[in-house]
Simulated scan of single mutants.
Amino acid sequence: MISANITSLLATYIDALHILHHHGVLDGYGHLSVRHPDNPPTFFMMRQVAPALVSGLDDIGEYRVSDAEPVHPDTPAAPIERFIHSELLKRYSDVNVVLHGHPNELIACSIAPEARLKPVIHMAPFLGSNVPIFDIAALYQPSDTQDFLVRNQRLGAALAAEFGGSSDSPYPPHNLVLMASHGFAAVARDIKLATYMGVYAVANARVQSQALQLQQVAGMGHAPRAAGDDIVYLDERQIRDSWETEIRTVEKPWGFWVREVRVDPLYVNELGRE
């Protein structure tokens, strides 16, 4: 029997998965994890289930931060890339939530480093001025399965290190890292903030891509422009001030997003309160 506190946490967790699917951050793949608040050496994470179809406790497993293995040996179908989550939670003690997905908009940014992902909208200051790109291909050993999946602790630890800071930093300097030809990983202190970052990272990438396209159209018949030339990005002060504002307003879109998925018959949340 789980406590009312954990039930409420997992109800929020399920809503977040549905919201992230609804907004195109997650598709049939991708995952979200949350550190167990009463037992920090473990974390909750969906089993091998499509995010939109997670509906209750049977779809969620508990895993050890130390090695990403299930707390209960009979847990079925643990996600292959659970090492993304375990290694980030292990490295950064103040990180409580990890998000990983494969939206097309962010994959495009991961393979076009000359047009680096940068904040162009005030809702995405969490991106910072320099989003790292993790290239797993550079880390492959001859025996590795080279399918871009983070399949073990070694690769998970390398991805976690890309978020920056020292090995004893409680929270990393980067909230989000692109994964070349794969997608992205992001960290947060709580589920609602992680959901916000996922939604607006994709929105920012979409707006940035549209601006780059408009720039190229405007430049036709003129001298070639360098990638990113003339695009207006948030500067360091705007990034800092916008983040201080946005981080306090997450509840506003969250309430709308929850209602949006609660009325959609695709999404079932057995733990959610009406």
Rank of each mutant, 00 (worst) to 15 (best):
S3Y: 02
S3D: 04
N5E: 14
L10H: 04
T12F: 03
D15A: 10
D15Q: 13
I19Q: 02
H23L: 03
D27Q: 05
G28M: 06
Y29L: 14
P37S: 10
T42K: 04
S55W: 01
G56R: 04
L57G: 01
L57Q: 06
I60Q: 04
G61A: 11
Y63G: 02
V65P: 01
A68L: 12
T75M: 13
P76S: 10
A78K: 15
E81K: 09
I84R: 05
I84S: 02
S86W: 07
L88V: 00
L89V: 11
N96M: 05
N96W: 03
A115Q: 13
V120L: 12
P132D: 12
A137F: 03
A138R: 12
Q141K: 15
T145F: 09
F148S: 00
G156K: 06
A160G: 08
A161W: 08
S167F: 01
V177Q: 01
S181A: 15
G183L: 07
A186C: 07
D190L: 09
Y196L: 00
V199Q: 02
A203H: 15
N204T: 00
R206S: 14
A211I: 15
Q215G: 08
A218I: 07
P224C: 08
I231F: 05
I231Q: 06
V232E: 11
I239Y: 02
W243D: 09
E244D: 14
T249P: 04
F256P: 00
V258K: 06
R259W: 09
P265I: 10
V268M: 14
R273G: 07
